[in-house]
Amino acid sequence: KRPMNAFMVWSRGQRRKMAQENPKMHNSEISKRLGAEWKLLSETEKRPFIDEAKRLRALHMKEHPDYK
């Protein structure tokens, strides 16, 4: 399984929150809205998620050196 990218790290928490606030909303609609919100974030707002994704990628490479 591939490590999560920055968007996936961010959206994991956001998706849960949005699903709780809008229980009838379909997952595909939640995904569209999350994608639009992510695009509006500044580089500074994205930075912690980018850093976490880098950390996860490095850990994955260490644990699975033969993974392509």
Score class of each variant (00 low, 15 high):
K1A: 07
K1N: 13
K1T: 10
R2H: 06
P3A: 09
P3M: 05
P3W: 02
M4Y: 04
M4S: 07
M4Q: 07
M4P: 14
M4D: 15
M4T: 11
N5D: 15
N5H: 03
N5I: 05
N5R: 02
N5W: 03
N5E: 09
N5S: 11
N5C: 10
A6Q: 02
A6M: 00
F7N: 00
F7A: 00
F7K: 00
F7I: 01
F7H: 00
F7S: 01
F7Y: 09
M8I: 11
M8E: 15
M8C: 07
V9D: 03
W10H: 00
W10Q: 00
W10E: 04
W10I: 01
W10C: 01
S11E: 13
S11T: 04
S11F: 05
S11G: 04
S11Y: 04
S11V: 06
R12M: 14
R12T: 15
R12F: 14
R12E: 15
G13Y: 09
G13P: 12
Q14T: 06
Q14V: 04
Q14P: 04
R15Y: 11
R15W: 11
R15L: 09
R15D: 06
R15V: 09
R16M: 13
R16K: 11
K17G: 04
K17A: 10
K17F: 02
K17S: 06
K17H: 06
M18K: 03
M18A: 05
M18S: 06
M18Q: 05
A19H: 07
A19L: 11
A19G: 06
Q20S: 10
Q20T: 08
Q20I: 08
Q20V: 06
E21G: 03
N22M: 02
N22L: 04
N22R: 03
N22G: 06
P23Q: 04
P23E: 04
K24G: 15
K24W: 10
M25H: 00
M25A: 07
H26T: 15
H26K: 14
H26A: 13
N27S: 13
N27C: 08
N27K: 09
N27W: 10
E29K: 01
E29V: 04
E29T: 03
I30F: 00
I30K: 02
S31Q: 12
S31T: 15
S31K: 12
K32R: 12
K32I: 08
K32Q: 13
G35W: 14
G35C: 13
A36I: 15
A36P: 02
E37V: 04
E37C: 02
E37Y: 04
E37D: 09
E37S: 07
W38L: 00
W38E: 03
W38M: 00
K39L: 07
K39F: 06
L40M: 14
L41C: 03
L41H: 01
L41A: 01
S42D: 07
S42M: 02
S42P: 10
E43D: 13
E43T: 07
T44D: 13
T44R: 08
T44I: 11
T44P: 10
E45D: 09
K46L: 00
K46Y: 01
K46E: 03
K46C: 03
K46S: 01
K46G: 00
K46W: 00
R47S: 08
R47G: 08
P48G: 03
P48R: 02
P48Y: 02
F49E: 01
F49S: 03
F49V: 02
F49N: 00
F49H: 06
I50P: 04
I50N: 04
I50G: 05
I50C: 08
E52M: 00
E52F: 00
E52N: 00
A53D: 01
A53K: 00
A53N: 03
A53F: 03
A53S: 05
K54T: 08
K54E: 14
K54I: 07
L56C: 09
R57N: 15
R57A: 14
R57V: 07
R57Q: 15
R57T: 12
R57H: 08
A58H: 11
A58V: 12
A58P: 08
A58K: 14
A58M: 12
L59Y: 09
L59R: 10
L59E: 15
L59G: 12
H60K: 14
H60R: 10
H60Y: 11
H60A: 15
H60S: 14
H60I: 08
H60W: 11
M61A: 14
K62V: 11
K62G: 12
K62F: 07
E63N: 14
E63W: 04
E63H: 10
H64R: 12
H64E: 15
H64M: 15
P65D: 14
D66H: 08
Y67T: 15
Y67H: 13
K68P: 03
K68L: 15
K68D: 15
